[in-house]
Design a protein around this nucleic acid. Sequence first.
DNA 1: TTATAGATTGCCT
DNA 2: GGCAATCTATAAT
Length: 211
Amino acid sequence: MIKQRGRQLRSLPRSFFSRDPRRVARELLGKLLIRNRGKKVLAGRIVEVEAYLGSGDPAAHAAAGVTARNRVLFGPPGHAYVYFIYGNHYCLNVSCQPKGEAGCVLIRGLEPLAGDLDMAWARLRANPRRRGMAMHELATGPGRLCQAMGITRVRDNGRDLADPRSGLWLADDGFRPRRIRRTPRVGIKRAVARLLRYTIAGNPCVSAKNR
DNA sequence: TTATAGATTGCCT
DNA sequence: GGCAATCTATAAT
């Protein structure tokens, strides 16, 4: 148990991640993603996620089997799978299911709770033209989220998100979302019809589509 | 060995 | 709405 800014934070047990990605996705809504850097803390509440299944999901990176890029997915649950996309952006996933099975959850949106200014600085440093950006969009979208939290493949791929000592971890502060919405996943071309995107209904930090 | 698409974002018209 | 940015995996040559 850890206290931070008056909140009691519990890390999530390995068993939380060792389940069907759909279940993990739904239950990750409302949890916190926390980055500890020395004395500094960056934290946000998860408001948007997508499930990618270990088998029978042609949209998943795991569909083609193990590669150098996706091998974390086939390892133990609760670890960060960070990949680089479109030559520009990082995306953060959490591995699910027991070792050998490759399901995961893509974290697509955070509501900033701590370190907002550091997040804004991180994004400004990357592109100085972003003055006047909306604070509620600091970590809305998988690429922005990684930039705001300073998540990269070299730094974070394979990191244990169940361990608070790892510096990047997931926590429960007791918050429970009131209403959860299911929609199709964003930006994919295969298995388009499946309702595997989960959002906290009405939250302003959910990306515009199907908010 | 080369070509193309991709779990995105932001700037352009 | 179009499209550029330009890494990675995989398909095509």
